[in-house]
């Protein structure tokens, strides 16, 4: 987030940071409202001395709503940051790579349910190494295979923790 001082010595927010904070606050508020609505359907307690299953979630959700309201209020009141100095801008952040990495992890998990750890993991590792800029395909394949085998040996053999076999091979 930008921490650039605004004119007059005040600390300011960049427009994208302001928008992101507001979006996050709105999402959290939506979660809190949903939690309160769902808690309304919780059955009353059978014990006279108990507060019931809904009391605590509602307290937490209401606290979240209040805190998010304060955050929204403060974010809207915060002054705008001056435009970034091109000379001081850091390295360009590649959100695309992050998104691909997250999707690749999801695909790996989905594949693991069918083909198991032994097949899904080396492909996943290979792909991530390529994504992170390692272009030596043979070395990547070897590293991926060794890492998969090491993790498998540590968990499955040394610690007797079974790893997913995959529904195709069960």
């Amino acid at each position: 987030m930008s921490n650039a001082p605004a004119p007059g010595g005040k600390v300011g927010l960049r427009p994208q940071d302001r928008l992101a904070t507001l979006v996050i606050a709105a999402l959290v508020m939506a979660v809190a409202v949903a939690a309160i609505i769902v808690a309304g359907d919780f059955p009353p307690t059978m014990l006279e001395t108990d507060v019931g299953p809904a009391r605590f979630p509602i307290i937490f959700a209401v606290a979240l709503l209040v805190l998010c309201a304060i955050l929204v209020f403060n974010t809207l009141r915060a002054p705008a940051a001056p435009p970034d100095d091109p000379a001081q801008v850091g390295p360009k952040i590649s959100y695309g790579t992050v998104a691909i990495g997250i999707v690749a992890t999801a695909v790996c998990l989905y594949a693991m349910e069918f083909v198991g750890y032994a097949i899904a993991t080396p492909i996943y590792l290979f792909g991530l190494m390529w994504l992170m800029g390692r272009r030596n395909l043979i070395a990547n394949a070897a590293i991926a295979a060794v890492l998969t085998a090491l993790i498998y040996a540590a968990f499955a053999y040394a610690l007797s923790v079974p790893l997913p076999v995959g529904s195709l091979f069960e």
Partner: peptide, 29 residues
């Protein structure tokens, strides 16, 4: 570029090891 994939693989396997549950890994993700 090697460590990060390794960390993610350990996250997946370590999470699975808790209850032998793929559901837990989706929660982790």
């Amino acid at each position: 570029s090697v460590l990060t994939p390794c960390i993610l693989a350990l996250c997946i396997v370590g999470t699975y090891a808790i209850n032998n549950s793929m559901f837990d890994i989706w929660i982790m993700l």
